[in-house]
């Protein structure tokens, strides 16, 4: 009964909320509700304490920092400037370009990675020999420290590197990859996807594995082909893990900067300068932590908008898992 979990309209605002279920809700004794609230407090207290102390408190401090202006290095007294740092950023043509680049990057890389991860997850949940081996092989890039794999790709994609050696041996022409403003972003996407796809795949594999077998059997009885089965059975029943993967991947790509730092340094001609890399450079490279904090606040707000849209797009229309 979905209604057991979502008994009250005021509470039925969570992700799994079913309006139909909520409407059928019946009030339960307040003792029961108090008991649940008490358990919730016990279960949440440690995690909430950790989140407050280790994430939100320093984040609030960063927010405050963004309202001040100080000498680089941060030892000299800083002065309150309100939104002055934000004003400086928004008056800069280069910063607007950085924002646009970040958004375009995310509009490309996230659907690409999710589609590939989904394709792999579907393939890897079919009946194939030595399945766990193939899964691990795809997952391995995610286990290699990203600094290490960035360095390796930097060598592999050099103008005189092995990838170009293969290309020219096959009769193709040598590609500039990271050294041209036209290809640098695509090359970063390649590296980040090589790392990320296998990682997100495993979450989708678990999701597909959790789909009741009967539904696939029923689809087969209906003579549904693999593609129809995918869109009418797999996808609708995969919404929850898909939402997780989409949100987590989006966040990961918004804050991605190691490959950029190792491979392009934001270039050529700023073609790979994205917000997180820029903020990192401002904060740790130039030691301007006030301006860096303002850049991160803007980035976080854009990220928040993306994530909110994703929660909205992948809302659950019909509850499942209960009869």
């Amino acid at each position: 009964m979905q209604s057991r979990r979502m008994p009250d309209e005021r509470l039925a605002v969570g992700l799994g909320a079913s309006r139909a279920g909520a409407n059928r809700a019946r009030r339960r004794p307040s003792r029961q509700r108090r008991r649940e609230a008490l358990w919730a407090a016990i279960f949440l207290a440690p995690a909430l304490a950790a989140i407050l102390a280790l994430r939100l408190a320093p984040a609030a401090e960063a927010l405050v920092t963004s309202l001040y202006r100080g000498f680089p290095g941060g030892l000299r007294p800083q002065v309150f400037v309100g939104l002055g740092n934000y004003q400086t950023l928004f008056l800069s043509q280069a910063y607007w370009e950085t924002i646009a680049r970040t958004i375009v990057f995310n509009l490309v890389i996230n659907p690409l990675q999710i589609a590939m991860a989904l394709l792999l997850a579907v393939v890897m949940t079919r009946k194939i020999p030595a399945r766990s081996i193939w899964r691990v092989l795809v997952f391995i890039p995610a286990t290699i420290p990203i600094v290490g794999s960035s360095i390796a790709w930097g060598i592999a994609l050099q103008p005189q590197g092995p990838v170009n050696a293969i290309l020219s041996a096959l009769g193709g022409s040598v590609q500039p990859f990271f050294t041209s403003p036209q290809q640098s972003m695509a090359s970063i996407i390649l590296v980040a996807s090589w790392v990320g796809i296998g990682y997100w795949m495993i979450f989708l594999i678990s999701g597909i594995d959790a789909i009741p077998e009967e539904l696939f059997e029923a689809a087969k009885l209906d003579k549904a082909g693999p593609i129809r089965t995918f869109f009418h059975v797999t996808i609708p029943l995969l919404k929850r893990p898909l939402l997780f993967v989409l949100v987590a991947d989006t966040v990961a790509n918004f804050v991605l900067f190691v490959p950029i730092q190792v491979l392009t340094g934001g270039g050529p001609e700023s073609s790979t300068t994205m917000q997180m890399f820029n903020a990192y450079r401002t904060t740790f490279g130039h030691s301007s932590k006030n301006m860096g904090a303002a850049e991160v606040v803007i980035l976080s707000l854009i990220m928040l908008a993306f994530v909110a849209i994703q929660f909205r797009l992948l809302r659950e229309d019909s509850p499942r898992g209960s009869k």
Partner: peptide, 15 residues
């Protein structure tokens, strides 16, 4: 909880 994992750790490391 959602906000907590969106905050880039690099931004809060020094505080």
């Amino acid at each position: 909880v959602v906000i907590s994992f969106m905050v880039p750790f690099e931004a809060i490391a020094i505080p």
